[in-house]
C-alpha cells in the first residue's frame, strides 16, 4: 500500500508546520492561561473575577452586543444584496459586486475608520454638507460603530452566501409554484431552510469579525464605546492602571470563551439545519 510506504515519510513534511504552531501559537496561549490564574505569584481566580465585574463586564457585554447586532443585520442585508445581484440578468453587475465585495470585506482597520470619519465624522464631508451636526448627529457611538462595521461585514456576507444562492435551483421555485405555493411560501418552506446553513455560517463569521475588531474602534471611537478589545489594549499597554496586565489576560480568556460559546451554539445549529445534506 502506498500509505504504509510513503505515509510515515511524508508525515514528517508537516512536522515543521505543526512544531511552529505549537511554539508560536501554543506557548502564548499557555502563558495566557497561566497568567490569568496567577496573582502576585500564586494561583488565584482574582483576575478572572475582576475581568467579569464593573467596567470590564460592561465592555465585554458591549462587544457581544455590537457583534451580535452586526452579525444579524449584516447577514440579512448581505443576503438581500446577494440575491439582488444573483437574480440580475447583468453579468457585469454580478462580477463588479463580487470583486468589490472581495476588496471591501478586507477593508478594515485604521483606513476604514478614517474613511468614515472623513464622511460622517464631526467635520466629515456629508456631515457638513447636510448640516447633520445641527440634528445632534455623532458617528462616535454604538450605532455609528455598527454602521462602520457593516461596511466590511455586508460584503463578507455577500461572498459567503452567493454560492448558496447560486445553488438554489430554478426548478425548486417552479415545482413549488406548481404545487400551489406563493412566493412567500416557497421561501418559507424551501428557500430559507436550504439557505440556513450558509446564513448561519456567514453570521458566525460576521460575529467573529466584529468581536475581534480593534483597529477600527481604536481609531474611531477611542474609548467612548466600551469594547473588550479596547479594554485589553489599555490594560496591556498600562494605559489606565499599572499592574493590570494579568486582567488583560483574563479578559482575553473571556473573549476566547465567548468565541468558544458561539461555536458551541453554532455547530449543533449548523448540523441540525444541514441534516438533509447528510
Amino acid at each position: 500500500m502506498r500509505d504504509s510506504r510513503t505515509g510515515s515519510k511524508s508525515r514528517w513534511a508537516a512536522a515543521p508546520l505543526l512544531a511552529f504552531v505549537v511554539i508560536v501559537f501554543g506557548v502564548p496561549m499557555l502563558v495566557l492561561l497561566g497568567g490569568t490564574f496567577t496573582k502576585e505569584g500564586t494561583f488565584s481566580t482574582a483576575n478572572l473575577t475582576e475581568s467579569l465585574q464593573g467596567a470590564y463586564l460592561t465592555a465585554l457585554l458591549g462587544s457581544v452586543k455590537i457583534s451580535a447586532l452586526v452579525a444579524v443585520l449584516g447577514a440579512v442585508l448581505g443576503t438581500f444584496l446577494a440575491q439582488a445581484v444573483v437574480t440580475s440578468r447583468f453579468r457585469a453587475l454580478r462580477e463588479a459586486v463580487l470583486t468589490a465585495s472581495g476588496v471591501l470585506a478586507n477593508f478594515g482597520g485604521v483606513p476604514l475608520a478614517f474613511a468614515w470619519i472623513a464622511t460622517l465624522g464631526n467635520s466629515g464631508v456629508v456631515t457638513t454638507t447636510l448640516g447633520l451636526g445641527d440634528y445632534g448627529w455623532s458617528l462616535y457611538n454604538f450605532w455609528g460603530l455598527t454602521l462602520v462595521y457593516l461596511y466590511f461585514s455586508i460584503p463578507l456576507q455577500v461572498l459567503t452566501v452567493v454560492p448558496a444562492l447560486d445553488g438554489l435551483r430554478p426548478q425548486w421555485r417552479e415545482a413549488a409554484q406548481n404545487n400551489g405555493a406563493s412566493t412567500w411560501q416557497f421561501w418559507r418552506y424551501v428557500g430559507i431552510p436550504v439557505l440556513t446553513p450558509a446564513l448561519l455560517g456567514g453570521a458566525v463569521l460576521l460575529f467573529g469579525g466584529a468581536f475581534s475588531a480593534y483597529a477600527t474602534a481604536q481609531a474611531m471611537v477611542g474609548s467612548t464605546v466600551p469594547l473588550v478589545t479596547l479594554k485589553i489594549a489599555d490594560a496591556l499597554t498600562g494605559n489606565v492602571l499599572i499592574g493590570h496586565e494579568n486582567v488583560a489576560l483574563a479578559l482575553s480568556l473571556d473573549m476566547i470563551v465567548v468565541a468558544g460559546l458561539v461555536m458551541a451554539v453554532y455547530l449543533p445549529l449548523q448540523r441540525r439545519s444541514a441534516r438533509w445534506l447528510r
Binding site: 435551483r169 417552479e174 415545482a175 406548481n178 424551501v190 436550504v194 438533509w276
Partner: peptide
C-alpha cells in the same frame, strides 16, 4: 398565475426540495 393552475408537473431532474424528505 402558475400557482393556481390545475396541472402537476414533473421536471427533468433535481426538482425535489432537498431540505424535505
Amino acid at each position: 398565475p402558475a400557482n393556481r393552475r390545475d396541472a402537476g408537473m414533473v421536471f427533468q431532474s433535481y426538482s425535489l426540495f432537498p431540505n424535505l424528505n
